[in-house]
């Protein structure tokens, strides 16, 4: 059963390149609201690139195909317009913004979502921010630190999840959120993500370790290789990939292709 087009994030036969080099070669994926999908694959499969292209990174050119957010094509939109429509990307390497505190940054992001002339209500904002921080075990002094400046790997990822919790996106792409995390940090971050799961959000978790999927249990698992999805399955697929590697999937795909 597929969800109606109005409540899915839909990637259709997407081709994209950087300069002359093709990166995505006909990738299709449907992520309905309420589901968590995982993309796994080897390094260099194009996983992180997919995340950036969806978010509208200017380095990449989409050559064909489409990305629809709740039925609306977002290709050609500025990254900030896509974000305000409800797309969130938790970065693998979040950027530092010296001198801008987390509290001010998130506030500016929320303010950007309000109609012209409307001001964010400060008291409500802080009440919500502190509640979300408590839920993510983020210490209060976090708010007065500059965004990602001097943060440990775990702090950066928690900061990403905090932003996600505050911005309440309808679709979130989590790019290698487990990278650089020790097991305790991984548990905290995963708990934060799980707390945000629900019928109003669709998530795409990009990882190349099955480990993360022990904590964030996906509804579906997709294998990406050379710019395409070559295999999809349920959460058991992740375990099989962990045990047997990717070669068998790639071989199956190659055999199927040559049989065509």
């Amino acid at each position: 059963m597929s969800a109606p087009a109005t409540s899915t994030l839909s990637i259709r036969d997407l081709h994209a390149s950087i300069g002359e080099k093709p990166i995505l070669k006909g990738l299709s994926l449907e992520i309905p609201k309420g589901e968590v999908h995982a993309i796994m694959g080897k390094n260099g499969a194009g996983k992180s690139t997919l995340a950036k292209i969806m978010a509208g990174h200017p380095d990449y050119t989409v050559t064909s195909g489409d990305v629809l957010l709740d039925g609306e094509s977002i290709l050609g939109m500025e990254p900030d317009v896509r974000a305000r429509l409800g797309l969130f990307l938790a970065f693998q390497y979040p950027m530092e913004i010296p001198g801008v505190t987390i509290a001010n940054f998130i506030r500016a992001a929320l303010q950007a979502r309000l109609p012209q002339g409307e001001e964010l209500e400060a008291t409500e904002y802080y009440a919500k921010l502190y509640a979300k921080m408590d839920a993510l075990s983020v210490p209060r002094n976090f708010t007065s630190r500059s965004v990602n400046e001097g943060f440990s790997g775990g702090e950066k990822k928690r900061c990403e999840i905090l932003q996600m919790a505050m911005l309440e996106p309808s679709y979130a792409v989590l790019d290698e959120t487990d990278s650089g995390l020790d097991i305790d940090a991984l548990k905290i971050v995963s708990a934060g993500v799980n707390a945000l799961r629900g019928p109003n959000i669709g998530m795409l978790v990009i990882t190349h370790y099955q480990r993360l999927l022990d904590y964030i249990v996906p509804d579906k698992v997709h294998v990406m290789s050379d710019g395409r999805i070559i295999h999809s399955g349920d959460k058991e697929l992740a375990l099989k990939l962990e045990a047997q590697g990717y070669d068998w999937v790639e071989k199956e795909y190659a055999d199927a292709q040559s049989a065509l």
């Binding site: 900030d80 974000a83 950027m95 913004i97 801008v100 500016a108 992001a109 950007a112």
Partner: peptide
């Protein structure tokens, strides 16, 4: 790009970075 991904326009992102 990071700031734009959070919903800030390019000008607002620049402004925030400069103010920072």
């Amino acid at each position: 790009f990071y700031m734009q991904q959070r919903g800030l326009s390019e000008a607002a992102a620049m402004s925030l970075a400069v103010n920072g």
